[in-house]
Structure formats: C-alpha cells, structure tokens
C-alpha cells in the first residue's frame, strides 16, 4: 500500500484508511518496538496503539512518501523516549555525524533515504546488520556483538567503517556535511 493512495484518505478522516494502515503495518510497527524494548510485550502493545493514534491525530500533516519508514520512525522515537523516561540511556556509538555551520538551505538537501540505502548496501551484510542493530534499534555495541557472536573490538571497527561509508556516500550524493 502506498502513501499516494492512503494519505489523502487519512487526511479526509477516512477511518477505513486507518484500519488498512494498521492491517498493513501494525506488525511492522510492533516488531520495531519489540526489538528496541527487548520484547516488553505490554509496553509494545501500548506504544503500537500510540503510534497509530498519533498518525491519526496528526493526519493533516501527513505527506505522501514511504509510510513504512515514517511509521518506523515514530515507533523508534516513542520507544527511545520510553526508555529515556525509564532512565535507560541509549549509548549510541558516535551518533553525531556532523555538527557545524550549514551552508545550504534544508530544502536543497539530496534525497537522504536513497543515499542512506546506497551507503548501507555497500557494507557487507553482517556489517550492515550490526549498523542497523546499533543505530536503528538502539542495541548497545556489546549487546549486538554478543548476539552476532562478534568480538567487541571487531564490532567497533565495523561501526567505524559504516560511519565513514555513510559520510562518504552522503557527501558524494550532494548531502552537505
């Protein structure tokens, strides 16, 4: 189901569109939450509800595009906020890719999603998995390394390579850093 079809219906207040959205992406949203919250099923269910209620309440601001990514982003933010409110910090390894002056207007930035996918696809599958586990799902380096049966320092090296590849691809693709 694409954003083109469903977003206008959501904006019109079509409840059936919300039902279809949940049918299509409910399990995905739940699985993102379950991954980040390490299977706290009660909280995952509550937060899944929150995600779709939030989409509905803010439907006037919806844009056509990758709905699945959008829902995933809301789910991740809710999960990370939940962990922060429970005093669980997210120790993300060098999360800051760039900080400084921005010579470009935000509107002139290149298509981030495409560049991101391009960068990640250049990584070996296990390196990509590690990168996603850490930066998308918020697993600590130690947790991800243990799950993937990697040496800790290998994991840190792979993440460093992933960050370099991401920065390089973004800059080549016109994303200003």
């Amino acid at each position: 189901m694409g954003g083109r079809e469903i977003v206008p219906r959501l904006k019109r207040g079509d409840i059936k569109a919300l039902e279809q959205l949940m049918d299509s992406y409910g399990r995905y949203v739940y699985s993102v939450l379950a991954r980040i919250l390490r299977g706290r099923s009660c909280d995952c269910e509550e937060l899944t509800q929150d995600v779709f209620v939030a989409v509905w309440n803010n439907r006037s601001e919806l844009r056509e595009g990758n709905l699945k990514a959008y829902l995933g982003a809301i789910a991740r933010n809710r999960a990370f906020n939940f962990l922060r409110s429970a005093k669980e910090e997210l120790p993300l390894e060098e999360d800051l890719l760039f900080s400084g002056e921005d010579p470009m207007e935000a509107a002139e930035q290149a298509d981030t999603a495409a560049l991101l996918n391009e960068a990640l696809q250049q990584l070996e599958p296990k390196q990509r998995e590690l990168f996603v586990r850490h930066y998308y799902y918020g697993e600590t380096v130690k947790e991800a390394a243990e799950e993937m049966k990697l040496n800790f320092s290998t994991a840190k090296t792979w993440l460093s390579r992933g960050r370099e590849k991401l920065k390089e691809t973004l800059e080549k693709g016109g994303y200003s850093l």
């Binding site: 990758n66 699945k68 990514a69 995933g72 982003a73 991740r76 933010n77 997210l90 993300l92 060098e94 999360d95 800051l96 890719l97 760039f98 900080s99 981030t112 999603a113 991101l116 996918n117 990640l120 996603v132 930066y135 998308y136 918020g138 960050r163 991401l166 850093l177």
Partner: peptide, 11 residues
C-alpha cells in the same frame, strides 16, 4: 546530523 536521526528515513 545524527546517524540515529538519519535512519528515520530507513525501512
């Protein structure tokens, strides 16, 4: 620019 935020565009 934070990596975790860039991944908001990732599926």
């Amino acid at each position: 620019v934070k990596i975790s935020e860039l991944l908001d565009d990732y599926t």
